[in-house]
Design a protein around this nucleic acid. Sequence first.
DNA 1: ATATATGCAAACGCTTTGCATAGAG
DNA 2: CTCTATGCAAAGCGTTTGCATATAT
Lengths: 148, 148
Amino acid sequence: MPRRSLIAEEVLEIMRRPARHCWTLDELHDDLTRQGLAPDPSSVFRAVCGLERSGTVVRVPLGDGRAHYEVASEHHDHLVCTTCGRMEPLACSIVADLASRVRAWSGFLVSGHQLVLSGTCGICADDAHGTSQRGRRRSTAQAGKNGR
Amino acid sequence: MPRRSLIAEEVLEIMRRPARHCWTLDELHDDLTRQGLAPDPSSVFRAVCGLERSGTVVRVPLGDGRAHYEVASEHHDHLVCTTCGRMEPLACSIVADLASRVRAWSGFLVSGHQLVLSGTCGICADDAHGTSQRGRRRSTAQAGKNGR
DNA sequence: ATATATGCAAACGCTTTGCATAGAG
DNA sequence: CTCTATGCAAAGCGTTTGCATATAT
């Protein structure tokens, strides 16, 4: 298992930190830049592509128009706050037992899934009761100008 | 409830047909073109935007890099076949009871969700047993050149 | 006349690729 | 010398916007 390029190694190191569980190419690029490496975005792209090809990381489509990646061994689903845009991981055991039901119904063999729950996170719910707007970043999850 | 533009009306009419349950802008544009109207893509975009703003249709992010839309009243989840790319709707009642659990765990108020199950559809599973490759369109759901 | 709808063309954001160079074995 | 990694620049793709014209009220 050849540990590809330097950038790929660093990317993987970053993605294994518990600080965050899910990255866009841009976020990876920013982190790399902060640590001294200042790679070209395309190099980050290629590094992540390699990691994806080898099955080390997986692409998670969160519906905001950008590609997000997470370490393959840590799959989970996502809670996305439509008020502040924060994202929290969610253990995905619930979805697992769905697979057998779906197969029985339709003959469809489920091998993977993506569940994104949107709503209001605890912090924003609290904020709404007070008058504070701390941390407010977006009015809705897709209200950005590029809501692909 | 002003029935916006002609294009918007046609779009809505198309989207209410049972033939399909989920459209990209391109697919809508193609259908419109087939019926004689040959609108500019941007007009389709604006029409769908209007329908989305009024809550008539919703955008569903299926993770293939394009925006998909469906009629708001017919929300369901999606089975995407990684072999042929076909998509089937899935009643989403299962996800509903998740909301209360999530709220209890994390304080997150779930107001919406998107569940995409990927795997092999019944037809492709059958094909794999025989030798036929009828209907095979893609090797994986994201193997296209633009896998955003 | 005012407002809305449409086409056309161009900008945009993010991803992806082509080509040339640099560096490792 | 060959192979891989990298940077740089540009192409691509789908989406979005600006502007001018057309259509309706």
